[in-house]
Every structure is written in C-alpha cells, then in structure tokens.
Amino acid sequence: MKKFNHSKFCLLLILVIALPAQAQIDLSGEWAAVFHEDSDERRPGPEMVEYQGIPITEAARRRALSWSPSLLTLPEHQCKPHPSDYGSRGPSNMRIWKEINSESQQLIAYHTRIRWQAPERTIWMDGRDHPPEYAAHTWQGFSTGHWEGSILVVRTTHLKQGWARRNGVPRSDLAEFTEHFFRHDNIMTQVVIVNDPVYLTEPFIRTNNWRIDLTQQIPPYLCETVTEIDRPQGEVPHYLPGQNPFLREHAERYNLPMDGVLGGAETMYPSFVE
C-alpha cells in the first residue's frame, strides 16, 4: 500500500485555500489618474456639439443641442458630482479601501472616493440584492461586485439622470452599467459599459486607467452654491430648436463633417472615418 504523503497533501490544501486570494487581486490604495486616453475630452473638456463616438439616439442628439452651459450657473446645478459612470473621466484621482467583517474577515464592500466633488461610492461584495425599483436613485447608484478570476466585475443600477459627455449629451436615470476592473501590478484599468434604453442605441464602452501613487493625498472638497446671475424664479437656460449658436463651431474648427460631430453608433467605428 502506498504511503499517504502528508507533506504533499498539506501543500495541495494550502494551494486550494490560497486560490481565491490569488484570484482576487486587492484594488485598495491611492490611485493617480492616467490621462493618456481621451485626454482632450477629459481635462479641458469636450467642445460644444462634439458628440462623435457616442452611440446616441436622435432624442439624445436633440436634447444635447438644446443644452446651454449656462444651466450650470443655476445654484441647484452647481454642486452636482459626476455620476459614477462618468466620474472616472474627470479629475479622478481615487482612493479605494476595503470594508472587512472583523469576525469572518470576509470582504463586505469596496469604497471609492474621487477627487472632483469628492463622491464616495460603495461596491457591495456580500451578495446583497439591488434595491426595488421604487427606491431612490443616487449619483453613484447602487453597485454590487463579484470576481471573475482576478477581474472585479461591478453592476450599477439606480442612477440619477446624468451625462454621457459633459457637453449636454444626456444619460437617463433608466441606464445601468457594468464595469470590469483589471489590475496589472501598479496599473489599474477600468472598462465601463453603459446601457441606456432611452438615449443610447448600443452599449457605450469606455476605458480609464490609473497608476498607484503611494504619496497621493486627496484633499477635502467643499462645494457651496452661490447666485451667479440673478434670474427670475424658474428660468432655465437652454437653446430653442435650431438656435444653438455653437452648432458648427467644432466641426468648422477641425474641418469635420457635421454628420460626424453629431454622433451616433456609426461614428464609433473605423469604417465611418474611411
């Protein structure tokens, strides 16, 4: 009879127990945003009527064309943070930390805080359900995560109405999105896939990157509203149909065709440029 090899069994046991730990790469830490991708859109910001590359519906296009940046002067609009599907596009230096059950040492949630407007977000990892449809929607939405190998996959629902691009391209409160977080040593990549039954004809996919930064300190962010322009109660800045003064500005500056800058699914693909 072959002798039972205790040392090999123990080694195998350790490997099996260690497998989840190997697969679930820790995302905690201070992460500095890397802007090598879509830098012009993300830092100075997009121009008016620059909708190319977004699979928007005709309704989204018309709504974006009626959007006036003066809307952001209204006090109620001034302190809105980016919603979580867009937060990574802005000044997105980010802290990620874990919430651990002190008894079981199980991961309850990941929390994130982003620099601009300092939105804090929770990604529940304890298997809880999403809230019912009549629950409140928030800027960060309700997020649950699970591991697929070493990739953290997050599903987010219950979002407030937001924006697909910060030049008036809308994203509705019925949208949901999925994220995939990959970590390769000191680099983290996030893939965001937004589905919006109201304003998108196809899933809208973007990626964002961060580099670990052991010296990063995210400062406090206070926002107080002020009355910038004394307007009559209820006045809402917007452009009437056909009266957007910036309609052709971006297209003419870069010598682009209007049907390109007005966006739509077809403008996402290389075949459109060709």
């Binding site: 302190c79 407007q117 629950a135 409140a136 928030t138 109405q161 917007h238």
Partner: peptide, 27 residues
C-alpha cells in the same frame, strides 16, 4: 452634501426622489 438626499421628496407616482430629480423634471 453633493447635491443629494437632504430633503426627500415623495412623488405622486414612481420612485422616491430628492431635489435633483425634481430639478430635472422642472427643467
């Protein structure tokens, strides 16, 4: 903080809301 919660608003129909939701509807 962050233009969220605070005064909560129960609409005639639909989900629970706050000022930001009423703002979008008013706009």
């Amino acid at each position: 903080d962050r233009q969220e919660n605070g005064t909560m608003i129960i609409p005639g129909h639909g989900r629970l809301t706050d000022e930001a939701d009423v703002l979008d509807y008013r706009d």
